[in-house]
């Protein structure tokens, strides 16, 4: 606390502000994301502080920590109850990691394996998760894979899965279902995919693989940046970005972005044209896919929609 802090990281003052806001809203779960949250100079102190305030925290990390930071984290967090603290290690295929990175990840997983589950970001429809299955068994990780699909960031160039490739991704996921079931590994989805990607049989399989948590939804996850800017979720980081200080409560933040989601979906039902008339969308069983895809499609049109769709 005595050292001068870099300006682009979350400050103690802002952390306390956020924690207070969440506490008032009766929200008891905080995810620490980055970049790489463990690089924050006060990462361990922040984690301990939030735990002391009875928040359950999930840390999203690459698992690549300096030896010093890992030792510090292990020394302070190793004894924390597994219900209060968990890590999601976003693992890349070993083929694209350097041996030095692999070594660091190995140290991390050895230290925190039992409270770590694997996060896997699909940005290529031809993905392979064999290495994750090896890691889960080898390091005794939590038997759960958190799958996210790379979405476009409206107005920016990034790698993502185009709606035309969704079916390919879903086939690949279904291929893994038998082995996941045999290994008692569940799979959860960060963002819901459109329900029509799957047959009823495949939905049944995914329902089982996800331990009954399969949802075809898409709603605000609420991200807060170190500058106290707030937005709906990572792919929507350029959409309706506000200052957290503009809101009186966390409920207000959530309500604002829920309304924004509804407004966008009023303009366009989902990622496909057929979403507009889909009965499952109308009944709420499917939200019509990721909002970022819908907003991206607006960019290619004439500016005929309400101004807020473009900001």
């Amino acid at each position: 606390m005595e050292e001068a802090e870099p300006e682009d990281v979350l400050s103690w003052e802002n952390l306390i502000y956020i924690a207070d806001l969440l506490e008032v809203a009766n929200e008891h779960h905080v995810s620490l994301l980055g970049g790489e949250p463990t690089l924050h100079p006060h990462f361990v102190d922040f984690a301990i502080y939030l735990l002391e305030r009875n928040f359950h925290i999930t840390v999203f990390t690459s698992g690549i920590l300096s030896d010093k930071k890992l030792d510090e984290a292990f020394g302070c967090l190793a004894d924390v109850h597994r219900d209060s603290l968990s890590f999601v290690a976003n693992l890349n295929h070993p083929g694209i990691s350097t041996p030095r990175e692999q070594e660091k990840i190995d140290r991390f997983l050895r230290a925190f394996g039992p409270i770590t589950s694997v996060g896997f970001n699909i940005y290529n429809p031809d993905f392979d998760i064999d290495f994750i299955l090896h890691a889960i068994n080898g390091y005794g990780l939590r038997r759960h894979i958190r799958v996210s699909i790379a979405h476009p960031i409206p107005g920016e160039v990034n790698s993502f899965i185009a709606p035309g490739d969704f079916a390919k991704v879903s086939r690949r996921l279904i291929e893994y279902a038998p082995i996941l079931q045999r290994m008692r590994i569940s799979m959860g989805f960060d963002c819901g995919m459109p329900m029509c990607l799957f047959t009823d049989q495949e939905l049944g399989i995914l329902y089982k693989v996800s331990n009954g948590t399969l949802r075809c939804g898409c709603g605000p996850a609420i991200d807060i940046g170190p500058d106290m800017k707030v937005w709906s979720c990572f792919p929507l980081s350029n959409f309706q970005k506000k200052s957290l200080f503009e809101f009186n409560s966390f409920m207000d933040v959530r309500h604002f972005y829920e309304q924004m989601h509804d407004k966008v979906r009023f303009e366009s039902g989902g990622v496909y044209e057929k979403c507009d008339t889909c009965a499952y969308r109308e009944t709420g069983l499917c939200r019509g896919g990721c909002l970022a895809h819908i907003l991206s499609s607006f960019i290619d049109e004439k500016e005929i929609r309400p101004k807020e769709m473009y900001s």
């Binding site: 606390m1 005595e2 103690w12 003052e13 306390i16 924690a19 207070d20 502080y49 002391e52 305030r53």
Partner: peptide, 13 residues
Amino acid sequence: EENYLNLCILSSL
């Protein structure tokens, strides 16, 4: 200077 922050931390804990 750091005590102003530390007091917020203590109070919130």
